[in-house]
Amino acid sequence: MAIYGYARVSTTDQDLTIQIEALNKAGCDIIRQEKKSGSTVDGRTELQTILDFMRHGDVLMVTRVDRLARSIADLQDIVRQVRAKGGSLRATDQPIDTSTAAGKAFLDMLGVFAEFETNLRRERQMEGIAKAKAAGVYKGRPASIDMAAVKEMQAAGLGATEIARRLNIGRASVYRIISPAKERSVTAVG
């Protein structure tokens, strides 16, 4: 039986020291760490490595459930993968142990609250952006593609692939600029 520790922070300027110390104190045999967003499991290679190597009786240990996932769907997928391998999930700072009914129930409740918190944060951010736009303070991200250059190259007879290569942009971006917006007509059936 192995105890795999997993430590995660969202940004590169955040520190993993406290999590790593707690996981060491909890007796983790191996600790994997990464600085990636918890809003998705995509690109979290250290977590995937643990899930790939887990065997029957192994434990995935985190300090808190929000270090593992920020959505119910991702959390449930991770727990399913751990269980399919015959392992369990535990947390050092929360009464989570998926090998018990009470630990599983507590995990599900925390997952709901973590997702709720993420959604509230997203709503507050969107409200702040809308307010800044209304005040004329926020104008959005500056354009990263020179539309005039795309149109000039098209007028010179270059195709989308060559334009994309020369400007180091995606072909889809070129097509969005050179293809006129097509109005769709809705026809009633029947």
Rank of each mutant, 00 (worst) to 15 (best):
M1V: 11
T11R: 03
T12P: 00
T12A: 08
T12C: 05
D13H: 02
Q14P: 02
D15Y: 00
L16C: 05
Q19Y: 05
I20N: 08
L23C: 07
N24D: 08
I30K: 14
I30T: 08
R32K: 10
Q33R: 12
E34M: 05
K35F: 01
K36C: 00
K36R: 07
S37V: 00
G38P: 06
G38V: 00
S39F: 04
G43R: 11
I50H: 00
L51P: 13
L51M: 08
D52T: 10
F53M: 09
F53H: 12
G57C: 14
G57D: 11
L60A: 07
V62E: 02
V62W: 00
T63F: 05
R64E: 08
D66T: 13
A69C: 02
A69V: 02
R70W: 02
R70T: 02
A73W: 05
Q76W: 11
Q76T: 09
Q76D: 15
D77C: 08
I78S: 09
V79W: 05
R80K: 11
Q81S: 06
Q81T: 00
G86D: 13
G87T: 13
G87L: 10
R90N: 06
A91G: 02
T92I: 04
D93C: 01
I96V: 14
D97A: 03
S99I: 09
T100R: 09
T100K: 08
T100N: 04
T100Q: 07
T100I: 02
A102G: 05
D108C: 01
D108H: 14
M109C: 09
G111A: 07
G111D: 02
V112L: 08
V112G: 05
F113H: 07
F113R: 04
A114W: 13
F116D: 04
T118I: 12
T118D: 03
T118L: 07
R122G: 04
E123I: 09
E123Y: 12
R124W: 15
M126G: 06
M126I: 00
G128R: 10
A130K: 06
A130W: 06
A134N: 07
A134F: 13
Y138E: 12
K139N: 04
K139T: 03
G140D: 06
G140C: 09
R141Y: 13
A143D: 14
A143N: 14
D146Q: 06
D146K: 06
M147F: 08
A148E: 15
E152G: 08
E152H: 15
M153Q: 03
A155D: 15
A155F: 07
G157E: 12
G159W: 09
A160S: 07
E162G: 03
I163E: 09
A164M: 06
A164I: 11
R165L: 10
R166V: 10
L167D: 06
N168M: 13
R176L: 13
I178W: 14
P180S: 05
E183K: 15
S185Y: 12
T187E: 12
V189G: 08
